[in-house]
Design a protein around this nucleic acid. Structure first.
Lengths: 142, 142
DNA sequence: CATAAACCTTCCCATTGTTGTAAGGTCAAG
DNA sequence: CTTGACCTTACAACAATGGGAAGGTTTATG
């Protein structure tokens, strides 16, 4: 199988496949005499694994860990669970951060009349240089 | 005011201040004869504005828009509101995406016993190559 | 005054993950 | 045997930030 076909079959672009190979996430695949990469079903299988992990927001490093665990027949499922749970924790942090941003911004938007007049609490909120005004920007100063 | 002091006062590193200047987000500030940047209160005010917008997750490009609106005394507050609301929309998308990931991952984690045994639904879920198994990965195929 | 510490300057490199492009080699079909 | 569709490597770019080198300036101290 060519890299193009492997790309289609796995959902990872040829570019990225080469990149993953170059950084050692996947081991180098076989080559034809002329240098073309040849992908086996097993290779594509691994690529699909990566594709799924990537869709779940795992970093390349984390995918490396997962791949290693995947390929290790004797690992304990607890190890895998730990990686996954750590990642859930990271996702939670990101979600929380975005939600905080969202809430602050919405608060500002709610107070902006949004008409022709130039007066706008959103900009004043962003421009606030003292604690009183800028307090409006704090979501939860916990 | 030096760049170091401006950095402290605004919460933006000196590195980033220079960067923002280099890409034109802020206009070049005055210099001493020997080439040191001198920041006025107004300059620092703008930097603080940027710092807040950045904390709210605005991209450099969006911050450029906001800055322009901020400095335009005659803009309609509706214009600002539109930018802010568009950004809320973006935040919502990101949040949704992360929540979807989180839920899928949690689903997998819930089904992993997490003990010594090597059998692990998380890895099988990631490795699924057919629709039946991979359906477990879909959160809401709406 | 001399020297050292603490600044500042520009320039380049690394990061993460991905895409684009250029220059060239190969393969299959007509 | 040419054309087009593939493949190869290598390099640059993106966003936003940090790190460091090499060198100039200012300030504080002996």
């Amino acid at each position: 199988m060519n890299i193009g076909q492997a790309a289609k079959a796995s959902g990872i672009s040829g570019k990225m496949i080469r990149y993953y190979e170059s950084i050692g996430l996947i081991s180098p695949v076989k080559r034809t005499e002329s240098g073309y990469r040849i992908f086996s079903e097993k290779d594509v299988h691994a690529l699909r694994f990566i594709s799924r992990a990537r869709d779940l927001g795992f970093s390349v490093e984390q995918m490396g860990n997962l791949l290693a665990l995947w390929q290790d027949r004797h690992r304990a499922s607890a190890d895998v669970k730990a990686v996954a749970q750590a990642h859930i924790g990271e996702l939670d942090l990101k979600i929380k951060k975005l939600q905080d941003m969202r809430q602050t911004l919405e608060h500002l938007v709610d107070h902006c009349h949004g008409d022709e007049r130039p007066d706008c609490p959103i900009l004043s909120g962003l421009a606030a240089d003292n604690v009183e005004e800028s307090a409006e920007l704090d979501v939860e100063t916990s």
